[in-house]
Design a protein around this nucleic acid. Structure first.
Lengths: 211, 211
DNA sequence: TAGATTGTTAATCGATTAACAATC
DNA sequence: TAGATTGTTAATCGATTAACAATC
């Protein structure tokens, strides 16, 4: 795989290529061209070509395109889907429980080793295949799990606090689903999934459409 | 409010400003400057100034900044949080159920009027305050609900199919949480929340950090 | 007043798109 | 061969950042 700089938008597209190519492979398709992928996914053919060039181990073949299997290999390896990334989840409420039961994470290399909550009714239970521990045990347990990623699904009011605890316990990346912006040291990766932001994009475009 | 063009990234920032400003207001803060907001949220002061100028009804005051309450008003009105947007949800599994129980949507003007599923165990039940109907009833019920937004939480394998049904039933916007890219007519708004994309950004940056 | 902040205009930066020769 | 697709280089576009006069 080639090295290089990848923009946020570009990184976001890779899993979408991968999903599309996996479906193609299931249908028995062996080669695919950039214009076809672009057509199906709503990207320009130039963009697809550049994106795939940047991560593929093999060159494409003029007139034929690229090998679907080889692209899948390159994408899975680039995205780290063949690694084991231990993670913890904090806040086993409705959303947290849904994520704990989401089977696709393990195929993406994300292994949620433990969940933490303060609710006595949840502590000690299993959600999916994950055990729920008291939040107070986090600092003690995280080092042994080698978890570098903390998934935060708490209410906004405590999200900053538990993020700080996760960093203190040794996590280097925070994946936050809490509806509030977190402030963390630059040495920590922060990725926020903000439903309000997503809805804002949708509503604004819908308003324009219905005018 | 001023008219103008808003980029996707810009639209995503507005709910984040709003949340931050709401917290400021709770603390009794009356005026706030763009440099302060930028500092707290990790944006440049120029960007904050432009973003707020574009949606604010009042001008800022040199040396003082902008009125927190007035900004909140402008943001809520711009984001449509004072409207009632009827919506439906399709696929009442773990994630769908979590969204049905998410109380913040109503404060964002999003009213989920009905949920649809094919699982006989779920049909007829209430999840949160929403009734679950058979998927087959969708086309009949949506017009009466005036639902223009369909929230899709089904498995990838059926997401395209139910999206098509929602459009046929009269929905003009699809908010999809299914892990697959959907293809829809240009006349329909599509906003996809793709966890794999978000994780890809996080993992790539974590890999760079740990190298 | 002095100085912080505003709003506006210009410059920069980076991503996307276009153009085109090379290749099977 | 002809033509579709590739990879590369150049042009365009748009968002962000910088510069600066205006203002309380």
């Amino acid at each position: 795989m080639k090295e290089g700089k990848f923009s946020k938008n570009q990184l976001r597209r890779y899993p979408i290529y991968l999903k599309f190519l996996s479906n193609l492979k299931e249908q028995g398709v062996e080669y695919v061209s950039s214009p076809l992928i672009g057509e199906e996914l709503g990207y320009s053919q130039e963009q697809v070509r550049k994106d795939l060039q940047a991560i593929s181990d093999e060159e494409g073949r003029p007139k034929k395109g690229r090998s679907v299997s080889q692209l899948i290999d390159s994408l899975e390896s680039f995205l780290g889907y063949r690694e084991n990334n231990p993670a913890i989840l904090i806040g086993a409420g409705h959303l947290g429980s849904a994520l704990l039961r989401y089977p696709a994470f393990s195929s993406m290399g994300l292994m949620i080793k433990a969940a933490f909550d303060v609710d006595p009714n949840k502590i000690g239970e299993m959600i999916g295949e994950t055990h729920v521990y008291p939040l107070d045990d986090m600092e003690r347990l995280v080092p042994g799990l080698c978890a570098k990623i903390a998934i935060i699904c708490t209410p906004a009011s405590v999200a900053q606090e538990v993020a700080n605890l996760a960093v203190k316990a040794g996590c280097r990346a925070i994946w936050s689903f809490a509806p509030i912006h977190l402030s963390l040291p630059d040495s920590v990766i922060l990725e926020e999934v903000n439903l309000a932001s997503s809805l804002a994009v949708l509503s604004h475009r819908l308003d324009s459409l219905l005018d």
